[in-house]
Amino acid sequence: MTQESQSALTPEVSAMIGVSGDVVEAWGEVDGEYLRRFTQAVMDPDPRYWDKEFAESTHYGEIITPPIMVSYLASRIRPDQDDPVTRAFEENPESDGIGSIERPGELPPVPTNLVRVLNAGNELEIYKYPSIGDKVFFQNRYSDIRERVGRDGRAFLIITRETTYTNQKDELLCITRASTIRR
């Protein structure tokens, strides 16, 4: 069998489909100041984010927050861990700024020799806007791993990591899926 025709979807890789991480509580809670910075950065002036009286009169009955904001809440660096940014540059002065940052709830790596990583796309499913004061819980899972063959005849993988976000009442907030190509 030539290198070009070797399958990348080995039994060990297939076995990762469905593997879940722990349910992790994100550091902190959904708060108005983070909401202000986030919505200004995405350039969304919706008064449902900041005018309490108006927000309470809407379909949602309260101040709302952008659904995807919780994904960045979940990736916060906890203050009770060593500063990973400083460590990254101590280990490698040419660090890209993210290489050594450990995130809670990460999944075990997919056992493949394909090391080049490309962003293949994203999916969002939205069910409820997080409320101010919500604690956010999240869980990662490999929801799908597929094999494709490139124009050069070499097999590559499309790995989809699904993350489910809930709040302290176990209400489903949103589900995100991020797919990466491994060549």
Binding site: V42, D46, T58, H59, I68, G121, N122, E123, L124
Partner: peptide
């Protein structure tokens, strides 16, 4: 950032009582 514009865009179009349920996109 692009990914965060998407739910905003769908929210705005469906306001005040619709719902931006799903989206999928490539970069």
């Amino acid at each position: 950032w692009k990914q965060s514009v998407v739910p905003q865009y769908l929210k705005d179009w469906t306001l005040p009582k619709g719902w931006p349920w799903k989206a999928q996109f490539e970069h």
